[in-house]
């Protein structure tokens, strides 16, 4: 039979590469997930089980005591509330400022606006340590150390560069004719921004909300510097604080890490698309 079809190339019938690549990717994925699996596994085991060297095996039964302990702790409630009190206003305000500045840079450029824009965007690149000491002195002088205000204010300022960059790029895609038509109809610049440009920018706002929420929720440095008493700490500092208290209570540490990561994990699951868009913007520019 084979001789009857001498033209049919034998090699074409089975290409092993997709299978090989798939297996390689599965192995890598398992390796990548192993660290996280450890936390998940620890959170449903008793301290005794873990101490006996049994962290990495599958649990025979689900032990939820760690979660009960973590969720019933008043300190944890306070940490979570503080984190929300920082994250929500700082996310909203940094996006608000980015919208205002981005609109001017995109639609109302003036002499020197390009340079000003670059200065603001450059703020994105600097290690925060560079401005740590003067900010500490500033907030010390106005008596705001050990409150949440410095953390909120700094996140607004540090988030502004990325918000300005993204909003300016997005507003640039809104046709100028739309703005001019609205102005001719007697709309003010503020009305153009809020009634014309912003409703068109929901995708960009979603990208920024996702990014800013995650970064601010996860932040550790600013609350470390500016808060001292336990009832002012955010959840990420809370994890480190409670570590001393639960030195060998690995399961409780695992449950706490999971609870602290849940909001950002949920945001990631639902808004992954926006997340990736925000991170990759500019990577494929023509």
């Amino acid at each position: 039979m084979a001789e009857a079809h001498p033209a049919a190339p034998v090699g074409r019938e089975f290409n092993p590469w997709p299978v090989v690549i798939f297996i390689v990717l599965v192995c890598l994925a398992v390796l990548f997930l192993a660290p996280t699996a450890g936390v998940l596994l620890s959170s449903v085991k008793t301290t005794r089980e873990i101490a006996l060297g049994d962290l990495w095996s599958f649990p025979t039964r689900l032990y939820l005591g760690n979660f009960v302990e973590v969720l019933n702790k008043p300190a944890v409630h306070q940490y979570l509330i503080n984190t929300l009190l920082v994250t929500v206003p700082a996310t909203a305000a940094s996006i608000g400022l980015g919208v205002l500045a981005g609109y001017v840079f995109a639609k109302l450029p003036f002499r020197g606006s390009e340079a000003l824009f670059l200065v603001i965007v450059a703020g994105m690149f600097f290690p925060p340590q560079v401005i740590l000491i003067p900010l500490y002195r500033l907030f010390n002088a106005v008596g705001l150390i050990d409150t949440l205000y410095p953390v909120i204010l700094i996140h607004i300022a540090m988030g502004m560069p990325i918000c300005t960059l993204l909003m300016r790029n997005f507003f640039a895609t809104v046709p100028n004719a739309l703005r001019e038509a609205a102005i001719l109809e007697g709309a003010s610049e503020w009305q153009v921004l809020t009634r014309v440009a912003l409703p068109l920018s929901l995708p960009a706002l979603a990208v920024l909300a996702t990014l800013q929420f995650t970064w601010i929720w996860n932040d550790f440095l600013w609350p470390l510097i500016f808060t001292q008493s336990d009832d002012k700490r955010t959840i990420m500092l809370g994890i480190v604080n409670l570590k001393g208290q639960y030195l060998v209570a690995w399961g409780i540490q695992g449950a706490l890490s999971l609870v602290a990561s849940l909001p950002t994990l949920i945001v990631f699951l639902f808004f992954q698309r926006y997340f990736i868009k925000g991170m990759t913007m500019g990577a494929v520019k023509g």
């Binding site: 890598l28 994925a29 990548f32 996280t36 936390v39 995650t214 929720w217 996860n218 932040d219 550790f220 990420m236 994890i239 480190v240 890490s257 602290a260 990561s261 950002t264 994990l265 945001v267 990631f268 992954q272 997340f275 990736i276 991170m279």
Partner: peptide
């Protein structure tokens, strides 16, 4: 491969 980016440095 991407999800660790949404975890905090602490975690």
């Amino acid at each position: 491969f991407y999800f660790p980016i949404c975890l905090s440095a602490v975690v």
